[in-house]
Design a protein around this nucleic acid. Structure first.
Lengths: 370, 370
DNA sequence: TTGTAAGCGTTATCAT
DNA sequence: ATGATAACGCTTACAA
């Protein structure tokens, strides 16, 4: 891919080959055939390929003389050379790629987390592979294997649930893992989670201050750490607040439908004046169940959510909920993983993020005699 | 789980090796060092590596005798061999990886699309790289380059806007592209889009049937095809319906804030009884502007959205909107791309999906004298 | 400081 | 039908 005149020549041919009638916006001076390799750069710069590699690699850059490096850099830019991550990966056994596994991207909790993580990873030069596990352990396992085939340098797992084999698989495959949003109780896997106990306590205290004495908990599905932690948090907070009644009903999943079903069961149980839900999604189901029963959320029954997922400030009535730091969770998760990848201290510290209470209109003062 | 005594034995040993106090869930019989290569399988099966490759590769499977293939398969499974996508990619120049570029994953339109696409791609054996462009052309270009370094087999571009260099870059880099949700007018790039004109016509007709004669359009940002198409659709539909007035105000972006700002401008313009917005997100901004003006959406001003993004059925009032086929869009986008990757007919047909009208409570009959 | 050469794990092209 | 061999594009000992 030699001199400039030859390049113009090729470009000309390329243009001639194009449809004459089609408008072509200004194009970067990209060679028509992008198959430029390190050898081409080396030839152009009059050095050996290894020198090119050293010159363009930040860690080895110091090994090569400045003027040579400059020449190499110049030729590389001129030829538009981009190192093949595949070839480099084969050699170095690292792909500069990280995988994120979420249960379901459509669950609004995840997009902000994934987005923040992707941004942080991209800034560090990593590409992000994304996959949905559908809360299916078999699929999760399959995806981990597939990611391993792609030689991912690390894995962010937002789908960890009790009994998952994914983390053991990663250990066997030597893939560093970081858990996000969930943890695996009893296992020392670095994780970025929320302080669920504190979050639930915020909700219970808020309701207690509004005069509620009989508060139920609409709990999350079994096997998911957030559900267990929030349920435990509820028990503790209920005791601390000296509530008269604190019944618990669990939903089968963090979905509107499961929340709906569980809420129906809850409403025929011991009478309460407020419900602390483990999750915003469950609140939507609870809203539905209340509507069916001719009850108004907020007015007839106070309800609190968890996550402050997008747009719950716009539902009717706007949801009082526990806000988690979505973005920070993605960022810190990425940072934690990158730390494990670069440093040898492969026991990164777990992070527990502090949530806050957002008061809207789904919680009201308990009425007299309620 | 396991049941067999040998399994229990292995588990026991594993437990002994682990920290005594830490509970360890059952692990699949994964070899501790997963660095199994094709050569190991070949040795175990008593054949050459190339035979292993042929036996396990669907396309070349027919070349090898059944009994040999069976032996190879068995040994591969026993050793837990997984082919290195990196090594294979270096040789074949294809990574079995597809990239999806979205403007912003947090925009609720995209998660369903991305999810459906990822599922379809995974089913076809492709891994999905995801990245956010932030609507920044420079970043988009950078990401395309980075994806090229990773040798992606194809690219799904949901962020295409007028003047983007991404598609030319892809052409130069020989990366098949499919546009989703947006198109590039005047350029023959395969795309999966909505029939925006038909969608807007649905909204206008609905309002006209409710007796509205003065309808405004809250348009999308310049340079984005959906904005242009919906705006054009509005003009046509307005003419067809013989509206008295059909003013248009454009938002600077598909965001709540931009919608808010544009809506304020719209409200001080010529008086209307209904607004057809280019997008649900803009409606949220419009709701805010109405609230500021002491007006109630639905009651005082009818409004329609576009996309039927998650949870707009739960905002107050529930939004009448044009439902697009999110999932189908992701699926078809993936299918279109895969088609281009496998067949040589690299001019896949574009797809135009038909939207439908979902009537909720943000549209009311025009009041007398309004 | 730079060049040489080996090798990462596959697959494709030859032979046989 | 299978084996030998080279090649994909890069990095990294090692040699100079």
């Amino acid at each position: 891919m030699g001199g400039s005149s030859e390049f113009c020549n090729r470009l000309q041919k390329f243009r001639d080959a194009a449809q004459p009638s089609r408008y072509t916006p200004p194009m970067p001076p990209e060679p028509p055939d992008a198959r430029v390799t390190i050898a081409d750069v080396a030839r152009a710069a009059g050095v050996h390929a290894s020198t090119v590699s050293r010159a363009l690699n930040p860690t080895t850059r110091a090994m090569v003389r400045d003027d040579v490096a400059a020449r190499v850099e110049h030729e590389a830019a001129r030829l538009g050379w981009r190192p093949s991550a595949i070839a480099a990966g084969l050699r170095t056994r690292r792909s500069r790629t990280v995988a994120i596994l979420v249960p379901d991207l459509v669950n609004p909790v995840f997009p902000p987390i994934v987005r923040a993580a992707e941004t942080a990873l991209a800034a560090a030069g990593y590409a992000t592979l994304l996959a949905n596990t559908d809360n299916d352990p078999a699929r999760e396992e399959l995806l981990v294997r597939r990611m391993a085939e792609h030689l991912v340098d690390g894995l962010m797992l937002a789908s960890a649930a009790r009994g998952t084999r994914a983390v053991d698989l990663c250990a066997a495959l030597r893939i560093p893992v970081v858990l996000i949003n969930r943890r695996l109780p009893g296992r020392a896997i670095p994780a970025v989670i929320n302080d669920d106990q504190a979050g639930i306590a915020l909700a219970v205290r808020h309701l207690a201050e509004l005069g509620h004495r009989r508060i139920a908990h609409l709990a999350g599905p079994p096997g998911v750490s957030t559900a267990a932690d929030r349920r435990a948090g509820f028990r503790t907070a209920a005791r601390t607040a000296g509530l008269e009644a604190a019944p618990v009903t669990a939903a089968a999943a963090y979905t509107v439908e499961a929340g709906h079903a569980a809420a129906r069961a809850l409403l025929v149980g011991p009478p309460v004046t407020a419900v602390v839900a483990a999750n915003d999604m469950l609140c939507l189901g609870l809203y539905d169940a209340l509507a069916e029963a001719g009850l108004r959320p907020g007015a007839d029954l106070s309800v609190t959510g968890f996550n402050d997922m997008p747009f719950v400030d716009r539902i009717n009535p706007p949801l009082t909920t526990i806000r988690i730091q979505h973005d920070e969770m993605g960022r810190r998760g990425a940072a934690l993983l990158l730390e494990r990848l670069t440093s040898d201290a492969n026991q990164g510290q777990s992070v527990r993020l502090t949530p806050s209470l957002v008061i809207r209109s789904s919680t009201h003062r308990a009425r007299e005699g309620q």
